[in-house]
Structures are given as C-alpha cells and as structure tokens.
Lab assay of single mutants.
Amino acid sequence: MLDDRARMEAAKKEKVEQILAEFQLQEEDLKKVMRRMQKEMDRGLRLETHEEASVKMLPTYVRSTPEGSEVGDFLSLDLGGTNFRVMLVKVGEGEEGQWSVKTKHQMYSIPEDAMTGTAEMLFDYISECISDFLDKHQMKHKKLPLGFTFSFPVRHEDIDKGILLNWTKGFKASGAEGNNVVGLLRDAIKRRGDFEMDVVAMVNDTVATMISCYYEDHQCEVGMIVGTGCNACYMEEMQNVELVEGDEGRMCVNTEWGAFGDSGELDEFLLEYDRLVDESSANPGQQLYEKLIGGKYMGELVRLVLLRLVDENLLFHGEASEQLRTRGAFETRFVSQVESDTGDRKQIYNILSTLGLRPSTTDCDIVRRACESVSTRAAHMCSAGLAGVINRMRESRSEDVMRITVGVDGSVYKLHPSFKERFHASVRRLTPSCEITFIESEEGSGRGAALVSAVACKKACMLGQ
C-alpha cells in the first residue's frame, strides 16, 4: 500500500517536472537572447534605426563620474514606483581627507489618484512632500541643488532636461508624456511658492545606482535594477552614441532593455503563462523582457503555473481556492519566502493557508518547484541581457580580458534567497573573457542622484555659470 502511494507521488512529481521543464533555458538559448539583445542595442544607438529599435539606448548626458572633490548639501528625489523618497545628502571631506556622503531620508507613498490623475496632481503632491521634508529638517530658507531620480523612459536633451516617452509600472498621470519632466517639477514648486529649489540633474535609477557604486569602486561602469521592473545602464564610447554629437570619451546610456521583445525577438521563448500575464497587464505587448524578470510579474506567473497544475490534477487534489483564482493573489514576496523555507515546509504551508488552501507535504514541495522554475528562468533571462552589455563593452574597448564592476539594486536581487547566485553564475558562463565584480548599492537611487548633481554643480562652477 505504502509502495503504491510512494509510486503515485513519484509519478505525480515526474509529471510536474515535465510541465515545469518549459521554463528551462539551455545555454544556447541564452546565447541567442544575448546576441539578439546586442543587435537591438546597436539599432538603438544608431541614428537611422533608433526610432524602430525596441531597446532605445537613451543617452543620459552623464559623462563624468564623481571624483571626490564636490562638497555641499544636496536634496535628492526618487520616483520610480508607488513609494517616493526625499533625501538630504551631505557631501563633504571625511576623516583623513576621505570623501564622505551622509544621508537623511523619508519615504512617502503615492496615492492612487496622483498616479493615475493628471501630471499637475502628481507633481503638486511631490512638491508637497518636499515642503514637508524641508519643514522637518528646518531647511526651507536654503535654496538647495536638487537631483531627481526618475525611473521611467526619458529622452534627455541635457542633464536637466528630459522628455517622458511613456509611463510604465502602473503610472498613468495624463499630460506628462511628451513633456519635460524637470519643467513639470519646477512648475509645481513655483505653484507652491513656499520654498526654492535648483533642479540641476535628472537621472534614471540605473544611472543613480551606477554612480553610487562608483563611489565604492571606481571600476563600476554598469548599473542595473532588478526590482519591480528590470533595466540597466553602462558607459558607452561616445563615438557609438549617434544621437549625441561628439566622439570623445564616454557617456552613460540608459538601455531601457525592459522593452526588448516588443518587436518579436522573444516570441519563441514566451510561454502561455507569459501571454496571460501580458494580456492582463496595463501595457499589453510592451516591456516583454521586463515581464519575464521583474517583481511586478513574478508572483503572478507562479500563480498561473499553480492553476495549470491544479487543472492537471497534480496539486491540491485538483481544487483551487477562490483566493488562488484571484489575479495578483500570489505576491512576489511569497516566491522569495517559499524558496527561503528551511525544509520543514512550515513557511510554505503558512503562505498557502493564507490563500485558503490546506496543502499536503507533496503540495508544498511542488509549489516550491514552481517558484524555483519561474525565478530561475528570470535570473537566466536577466543574465543574457547583462552578458550582452558586458561583452559589447569588452569588444568596443578591444580588451582581451576586461575587469568590470556592476552596481545592482532592486528588491528581487536583494531579497530573493537564490536569485543573485543563479544570476551571477549564468552571467559568468556567458562572459568567459571578463572578470566581473557585483556590488549592491546602498540607498543607491538617492545618493547617486545627489552625486550626479554634485558633478553638475562642479561643472557649472568651472564653466562660470
């Protein structure tokens, strides 16, 4: 009897593995994704193909990295998701002549009506938060230079001027797309009239992360975010950046690689679950690469896999709870928690219980395998993109072996128990001629924006502006 049951459990697990095998990517698959990513990057950089390229390769006008001589107080704003952060950054000489960066910050959550109302409502709310922060720190009387981390696709015309191309991540505030974001912020500050600010720089969160990590390690020339969304930036040779005049030196390019796949480059790798996630998203047909990796989508992918296993009578005796059938019910943090389970399955059992399920031991094991399959594919897909960037940098610099540091931020990278190990191992397999160091950014977005502002202020002083 026991043997029969054991055989049935083994057969069930084997069927589960057959279904989950769809998520496995072979090294040849990853090399294919990497080569296609490089081709799209090239198209994004070139003037004649930029418009139709899915990977936009947006110039950021960040050319210099901090040298350690900029000092002063800077205000930093960070808008990239449902939370908005205001930070005071003091850049100065530390002990023994070292450079020191001290920060104080406060988080504000953005109400739904500000995210989806008008641009005026959104930026009025942001300036209200700045006003509140300055009151708390008794700094209303000071006109501070301000660095703005704005983590949406922007076409820069200068370091302090950028046109919002399109909202992502659930934002829909009308009247912002096609307009200068810094102008919208300046107008809102003017409307309030109770404080003055000098907006000197606007950067993407990947750029802010790279600059913040450069402060720790001067070989950091790539910034990457794996959180709600997924994106990367890197220092490109100016001669390859056709959208900006000049051939000397390097400029940081914001790849906006989340949109890779929007022209069909990933079609052969998309599964039924991916198509369902895409169809029910706020932007169907867009940001397809990001939807395979980002935390906004990972939990939902797992939920759809679990429903398939229920329908195949391989999980929960073929019956799903009402909660499990509800879109968004299986949160991405559950994926991390399930994979963090120590082996007694308590954590998995508790999560499934909150979803109205009474799982068996085998159910718990199957749910864990589903989570591992989805998150491992995410790590491997992400590795193909980064390997594409790094191999490109090595080739354009004609280096036999390139040493490089990548600064990384984002909740999936930082909080998932195995993502970074799987990701690092896969990147290294795909970049055999590179020695890569990964560092995690601390308060990256805010500190990085302030350091970019410090560079901009120093330049302005040198130019006598």
Rank of each mutant, 00 (worst) to 15 (best):
S280D: 10
D124E: 06
N283I: 11
T361R: 03
E40T: 07
G183P: 12
G299E: 02
S426M: 13
M41T: 05
R368H: 12
E421W: 14
K31T: 13
V55W: 06
R43V: 14
I225E: 03
H218P: 06
A53G: 07
S174V: 04
G175V: 05
E177D: 05
G264R: 05
V452E: 04
M210I: 01
R369S: 05
T376Y: 03
T65G: 06
C129T: 10
N180W: 15
V91L: 06
R358A: 06
S340W: 08
Y413D: 08
S321C: 11
V71W: 01
L146C: 14
H317R: 05
L463Y: 13
A320E: 14
A208P: 00
L30W: 10
R422D: 13
K346D: 10
S76R: 01
V33D: 00
V338M: 00
Q219F: 15
E399C: 12
L288Y: 15
E245L: 03
G223F: 06
N391I: 05
V101P: 03
G388Y: 06
V200G: 02
I348N: 02
D158A: 12
L307A: 06
D344A: 02
A11N: 12
F269E: 06
R43C: 15
V253K: 01
T103K: 04
E236L: 01
L309I: 02
C382A: 11
E157Q: 13
R192S: 02
S336C: 15
R428S: 15
H218E: 09
L430R: 06
L58A: 11
R345Y: 06
V89C: 07
E51D: 04
V406R: 00
K296V: 13
E312H: 12
C213W: 02
D363N: 01
L357Y: 08
E9F: 06
G68S: 11
E157V: 10
L184V: 11
Q239R: 04
H50F: 06
Y61T: 05
G117Y: 08
Y234G: 00
E70L: 09
G410V: 09
R377V: 00
D262I: 10
K90F: 03
R275L: 14
S353N: 01
I126C: 07
C233N: 00
N283V: 05
S109C: 04
S411C: 10
D247G: 03
H141I: 02
K296I: 10
E95T: 06
